[in-house]
Nucleic acid binder design. Structure first.
Length: 573
RNA sequence: GCAUCGAUGGUCUAGAGGCAUGACUUAGGCCUUCCAAGCCUAUAGCCCGGGUUCGAUUCCCGGUCGAUGCACCA
């Protein structure tokens, strides 16, 4: 038991936060089960995320299938781009990225080469592990997407989604209607995504099935000022921009206002969600000194992305872990789906005032054309209105025949037309959260041990809002009617919507410690004074301080302590 | 996926080719008027498959999971 990771994972396993999946069959790497307390905590984190994105921002949540048809992922680029060309050395049986090996030996165009060509390029190159030349090898694609088929005996290919984002793009037209054709708007989704990682390790950090919370915010390409930017413009966030990374200088704290003004962050939208993420991280219990925002370097950023930042959280075990990605993805995704589906993914932007455009046009005279040209009149009319406006006769081509139409058959007129607006393809701002990584960070950062009267006390210092069990209720002795009173208080708390646990087994000190270890923020104890004056003690997990309060006030008091509208120190006076 | 090492009650651990230790936890009881006290009792274990052997949890081989290194990856 050396580092915090082992202690945290041990505690999480013992107390029902995180379990290896299906242990009775021996588990599989990259999959985990959330136990009773872990599920509760994860749900509370997701709900806090919702309170930011859905309630505060007004981006409604949608829920799309985790299996998608092939076209979706052809459009998104995952069918092509989400796979690696791999090669196995026939001598030492090690796997390598074929393109990386070729690049290492300066094979021109290695990164874009086909599998066949890469195979022949590798023939005489030495294996990076055993140095022997590869010889005749097969270069194969390893796609990180789980592939399946839809329907019985069907040829229809499906994939388990590798991200939740595509659902918001494929529902774009419906969403646009839902938001009554106005930009900006956003939609979010919390759900499972799947990536068939080659070798997942690092416990909860790299999973094959994981939970993402993603927001896709659709904005006008030229209007990237967030309407609520004032909320976070003075908010300071630790930034590790490209300049800092290139100069190897430390993180700089900057207000969002300054970061946007100086051009470090591309626009207000990106900056806004950086600050919001920081805000959310603090609220779920991630330590401020273990948060930084790192900007993607130009070569790691997707070619279409305008700007991209990762929120990284420091872990004693894993170092800086990317937990959230916040990117301005421009119009790439919508254009991709427009191209693949042939549908229109644009938004009509109405001008404040219609623009009037003066144009000279040809107005054919139907009255004159009809009698003269009979059945050809219709086509001639059409051709005339598209012709350049010249006086004195126009030659038009109808059914391969050039016809001269005299000036008596048309009129050249100056007209004013009104243009009501323009069609644009919105840009997408995408904050994408790895919920499992957040859960791990919360567990690791909450873990604490201290020595109390010569005994080690393990405490999970979760924020009250995140703690799975919100309050524990104990009778000092499980007799003399104290247990009945305590059960009554437990019921009253439950009626108030508080998750309360009753416990009367063993010594009181042991019961406090049990709750400390699972991070229950408050404990109510019913003692003999309760029978006299109707008061109970309420104990604060972090300070271990106790105050007497009226038992009748407990449900409302605990509720406000959990919601954070009241702090424990306030009730101590 | 490769290489090395490991796997014993829920947790930590002793152990040997022939009855599997101890501690903590948990449960029940006694005791106890606020921070893992004490006493009694109980529950619970040799990762899976194959081989060698009269007999394997122990030795051998394969697998699974975990740790580490390499590779891979956000």
């Amino acid at each position: 038991m050396s580092d915090v990771y082992e202690k945290v994972i041990d505690l999480a396993r013992r107390r029902g936060f995180i379990w290896p999946t299906a242990e009775c069959y021996g588990s599989v790497a990259g999959f985990i089960d959330y136990g009773p307390l872990g599920s509760m905590m994860k749900r509370r984190i997701e709900d806090l995320w919702r309170s930011f994105y859905v309630i505060q921002e007004g981006y409604y949540e949608i829920e799309c299938p985790t299996i998608g048809q092939e076209s979706i992922f052809i459009a998104s680029g995952h069918v092509k781009g989400f796979s690696d060309k791999m090669v196995q050395c026939p001598h030492c049986r090690e796997y390598h990225r074929a393109d990386h090996v070729a690049e290492g030996h300066k094979v021109p165009g290695a990164s874009t080469m086909s599998a066949e060509n890469l195979g022949s390029a590798l023939r005489d190159l030495p294996c990076p592990s055993c140095e022997k030349p590869f010889g005749e090898v097969e270069v194969f694609h390893f796609n990180l997407m789980f592939r399946t088929s839809i329907g019985p005996g069907s040829q229809r290919v499906g994939y388990l989604r590798p991200e939740t984002a595509q659902g918001m793009f494929t529902d774009f037209q419906r969403l646009l209607r839902f938001y009554r054709d106005k930009l900006p708007f956003g939609a979010v989704q919390i759900g499972k995504s799947y990536r068939n990682e080659i070798s997942p390790r690092q416990g909860m950090i790299r999973l094959r099935e994981f939970t993402q919370a993603e927001a896709e915010i659709f904005v006008h390409p030229n209007e990237k000022s967030h309407p609520e930017f004032a909320r976070y413009s003075g908010y300071t966030v630790p930034l590790l921009g490209i300049p800092q990374q290139e100069a190897c200088t430390p993180v700089v704290p900057k207000t969002m206002h300054d970061a946007v003004q100086s051009g470090l962050i591309a626009n207000e939208y990106v900056a806004y969600y950086l600050a919001l993420t920081h805000d959310l991280f603090i609220r779920i219990g991630i330590k401020p000194e273990k948060i930084r925002f790192r900007q993607h370097l130009p070569d790691e950023r997707a070619h279409y992305a305008e700007d991209c930042w990762d929120a990284e959280v420091f872990s004693e075990r894993f170092g800086w872990v990317e937990t959230v990605g916040i990117a301005d993805r421009t119009d790439y995704d919508l254009r991709a789906h427009a191209g693949e589906s042939g549908e229109d993914f644009s938004v009509f932007i109405q001008f404040d005032a219609p623009e009037t455009v003066k144009k000279t046009v040809v107005v054919p005279s139907q009255k004159a054309l009809g009698p003269k040209f009979r059945d050809k009149a219709k086509k001639i009319t059409q051709a005339l209105s598209e012709a350049a406006p010249v006086q004195g006769g126009i030659t038009v081509n109808v059914d391969g025949e050039d016809l001269f139409i005299g000036p008596e058959f048309y009129e050249v007129r100056e007209v004013e037309t009104e243009i009501q607006g323009v069609n644009i393809i919105p840009h997408v701002i995408e904050p994408s959260y790895g919920i499992d990584r957040m859960c791990y960070a919360v567990l690791e950062h909450a873990y604490d041990e201290e020595i109390v009267e010569g005994e080690e006390r393990k405490v999970m210092r979760f924020p009250p809002k995140i703690a799975p069990i919100q309050v524990a209720v104990f009778p000092l002795m499980s007799r003399d009617g104290l247990d009945t009173i305590a059960r009554g208080i437990t019921d009253a708390l439950r009626k108030r919507g508080v998750l309360a646990e009753y416990d009367d087994s063993g010594a009181i000190g042991r019961r406090y410690r049990r709750q400390d270890e699972i991070g229950t923020p408050f404990a109510i104890t019913v003692d003999y004074d309760t029978k006299e004056d109707g008061t109970v003690t309420i104990r604060d997990r972090d300070s271990m301080r106790q105050v007497r309060v009226a038992a009748a006030d407990i449900p409302n008091l605990v509720h406000s302590l959990i919601e954070g509208t009241k702090g424990f120190s306030e009730i101590c006076v």
